[in-house]
Simulated assay, not measured.
Amino acid sequence: MNSFVTEISLPVFKKDLVLEYLPTQVITEYIRYNTDLNVDGMIYSSAKESNAKNIVLFYNHEESLENLDFSKSSIKTSLIRDL
């Protein structure tokens, strides 16, 4: 698991974007759906900021609304319209 965390914390180059994220997606989906572990998400080191962490939560939309408090969030949303 330590080597996996190290690997997913490495920078990804644009030309390798799809292939580089595929192992991460497979492992996280496996952990989420195919183990007896009661895991709500993962935390791993950021490739961009040495002291920062990335957080992946295994929540769908409804679970996010139930479990997370967005009232103090700095995330801004925008409306994308179909042309």
Results as ranks from 00 to 15, higher is better:
Ile80Lys: 11
Ile31Arg: 02
His61Asp: 13
Pro11Thr: 03
Val26Pro: 00
Thr77Met: 12
Arg32Trp: 00
Phe70Thr: 09
Tyr33Cys: 02
Arg81Met: 15
Val56Arg: 06
Leu83Val: 14
Lys48Asn: 14
Asn2Met: 10
Asn54Ala: 07
Met1Gln: 03
Asn38Leu: 05
Leu22Tyr: 05
Asp69Thr: 02
Ile43Asp: 09
Lys76Thr: 11
Leu22Trp: 06
Ser50Gly: 02
Ser9Ile: 00
Ser3His: 10
Lys72Asp: 09
His61Glu: 14
Asn60Val: 03
Ala47Gly: 15
Leu57Lys: 10
Thr35Ser: 07
Tyr30Asn: 10
Lys53Gln: 12
Glu20Asp: 12
Ser78Ala: 11
Val39Leu: 06
Asp40Gly: 01
Leu22Thr: 04
Tyr59Asn: 05
Met1Lys: 04
Asn51Thr: 13
Lys48Gln: 12
Pro23Arg: 00
Leu22Glu: 12
Asp16Trp: 02
Ala47Cys: 09
Lys48Arg: 14
Tyr33Thr: 10
Tyr30Lys: 13
Ser71Gln: 04
Gly41His: 03
Glu63Val: 01
Met1Thr: 07
Lys14Glu: 13
Glu62Val: 07
Thr24Lys: 12
Tyr30Ser: 08
Val18His: 13
Leu22Pro: 00
Asn60Lys: 07
Ile27Trp: 05
Phe58Ser: 12
Tyr21Thr: 06
Ser64His: 04
Asn34Pro: 00
Thr35Leu: 08
Ser9Thr: 03
Lys15Ile: 02
Ile8Phe: 00
Thr6Val: 15
Lys15Phe: 00
Ile43Tyr: 11
Leu83Ala: 13
Ser50Arg: 12
Asn2Gln: 14
Val12Pro: 05
Ile75Tyr: 03
Ser9Trp: 01
Thr6Ala: 15
Leu83Ile: 15
Glu66Ser: 12
Leu10Asp: 08
Thr77Ser: 12
Arg81Gly: 08
Met1Cys: 03
Tyr44Cys: 01
Leu68Met: 14
Asp40Asn: 02
Thr6Tyr: 15
Ser78Val: 10
Gln25Glu: 10
Thr28Tyr: 02
Ser71Met: 02
Pro23Leu: 00
Ile55Gln: 05
Leu68Tyr: 07
Ile27Tyr: 08
Ser45Cys: 04
Lys15Ser: 04
Ile31Gly: 04
Glu29Arg: 11
Ser46His: 07
Glu66Pro: 00
Asp69Gly: 06
Lys72Thr: 13
Gly41Ala: 03
